[in-house]
Amino acid sequence: MKRILMKGNEAIAEAAVRAGCDLYFGYPITPQTEISEYLSSRLPEEGKVFLQAESEIAAIYMVYGAAAVGKRVLTSSSGPGISLKQEGISYLVSAELPAVIVNMSRGGPGLGNIQPSQSDYFQAVKGGGHGDYKTIVLAPDGMLGQMMEPVVFTEPQFDPLPPKDWAVSGKEGRKRRFIICFALDPQELEKVNQALQEKFRAMERNEIRYEIFGDEHPDLLLVGYGTVARILKSVVREGARKGLRLALVRPITLYPFPSAVMKEKAVQAGRVIDVEMNHGQMLEDVRLAVEGRVPVHFYGRSGGMIPTVEDTLQKVMDILSREGVKHENGI
């Protein structure tokens, strides 16, 4: 299969086209604007729709409309823009409309900056929108937005999709349908919420994904996703050269969170270090997963600063020596 050199943003856009994206709505914001730029020429080539909206709010409601008629639809943005989309995301969940949203996170809060950062973990995973809801959140292996890497596209494989017998299209030949995002009666709304909770429990049963890397009998478990996961893989390899027994759990789904494997591996290792490009957001989920069974340490950089392999390895060695873990080189 052909390897091509592509920016992460372009790879996402091309992948969306190959997966059958029918429409894209978005508003420019760095560091993800290449997604819009790429799709503005690529989607019309395929007879599909690209539209630049007047704001992220409008974009997410255009997504809502397209999803309501049963189309595959994509939008993308970054922290500040995702903040504006949060109301619409809550409405999408309420109306049970599927959509794909790319959040190429940058430094925050406020306008922050456009450097790589993981400041939006809470925003993506906990949802800034209102109401009792969850959305599936996928995290990459490495830096997606601006980095150029060799890419191989495989043919997307789908199980047959269920019929969209809920989508609106005009009622020709059937009874009319409606897409609704409210239930004014308390008993009814509780039922709606319970049904949504059922869906979230099913996600937790069926959708958890993660990668385990490194020593099978680690003395310290490393946890990280995205850019940090790449760095932590180097830390595991460097550590092994120094005789350290390290392993990495890399969540691929941030929600549903791979709590069971995290706990099992953490207990086996006896201690954990969570590394993030923020000041401790996923940390809360790691601690919940580990349930206080072993200490959870943290190392974080922010504002576009990236934890280096050297610094992280130093933290790792500090923890191991503080906790009196002996290893082959006898540090």
């Binding site: 539209l51 409601y61 809502y64 309501a68 008629v69 299209s169």
Partner: peptide
């Protein structure tokens, strides 16, 4: 007729998404 209910003030954007799709 078929209906799509949405958020306060956003109907023209929702309508745009529908019309561009169909």
């Amino acid at each position: 007729v078929d209906f799509v209910m949405g958020a306060h003030g956003r109907s023209p954007a929702i309508a745009t998404g529908i019309k561009r799709s169909r």
